[in-house]
Design a protein around this nucleic acid. Sequence first.
DNA 1: GTAGAACTTCAAGCCGACTTGAACGCAAGC
DNA 2: GCTTGCGTTCAAGTCGGCTTGAAGTTCTAC
Lengths: 149, 149
Amino acid sequence: MEQLSISEVARQTGLRASAIRYYEQMRILAPARRVSGQRRYDFAAVHQLAVLRRAQQAGFTLDEIRQLFFGFDKSTPVSARWRKIAERKLLELDARMEEIQSMKDLIHGLQRCCRCETVDQCGAGILRGGLPQARSPKPAIQRHRGRAR
Amino acid sequence: MEQLSISEVARQTGLRASAIRYYEQMRILAPARRVSGQRRYDFAAVHQLAVLRRAQQAGFTLDEIRQLFFGFDKSTPVSARWRKIAERKLLELDARMEEIQSMKDLIHGLQRCCRCETVDQCGAGILRGGLPQARSPKPAIQRHRGRAR
DNA sequence: GTAGAACTTCAAGCCGACTTGAACGCAAGC
DNA sequence: GCTTGCGTTCAAGTCGGCTTGAAGTTCTAC
């Protein structure tokens, strides 16, 4: 059973050693065995990190990936875990798509309709009905949940 | 010429007073006149903030909005300013759309093809060719520019 | 034995768009 | 004169996903 150092794992996964340490700290990777203080990994860790990267590419957060790894009954196969968390994520991605689409609509509307000379005119126009209005009546850009009122 | 207090402007724009102070600090709003230390606004400020909000809804950053307000020759009408910065933004939004689309493709691929029991299996599969692979050969999720190597 | 590469931990920094808190100022009404 | 309710400034905190730096330890090669 081969033992890899952290930089060897980093090389094989394309990650930085600091990222791997960070994942351990965030409890996404189980603490590695130590040999006089230094981390030693086997190939399972490389595989786990490959899954992590793929999950990130698919838009999952580290919290969600921790869920994927540790948030299920041990008997639940990974394929079922994926399907479970993928459902929520697809809804979220659709929401993000629509958000972006409504931004695009807004910009196209501006490009088509704005004839304003000054910012003042433009603002007055927006207050007087918003004109193009796009499709979504919602605030659209709010990731900082302290925002609404 | 009416003089509005900061909380009055906040009420009319739906923003928080702290946000309005922040915009001034970030030099997106010109410093307001002071009456014994307190800010006083006229309606132009309300209009300007309406434009700011609309621009945010359309996905512009505060940096870009500062550009919109102050980054052009004074003779350039606002409609032309919009069109100029909108061009770049549309490209960016298209890129974000594709990014999200490739995430969705990745997740659909997982849902269709993953039969793995364990994370280890799954990771080994990913390393052995990545399977669905989606469309984009690019890293996909990288906003932290320190990331690549 | 010793240089230097690789490893460790811990704390702090980065990005963007704010909010929150502390400590204070100023005006009006009682 | 005192409270209430605005307003002010400045510093620090938030979120996520790391990186960077300092200071110290251990491994490796000569």
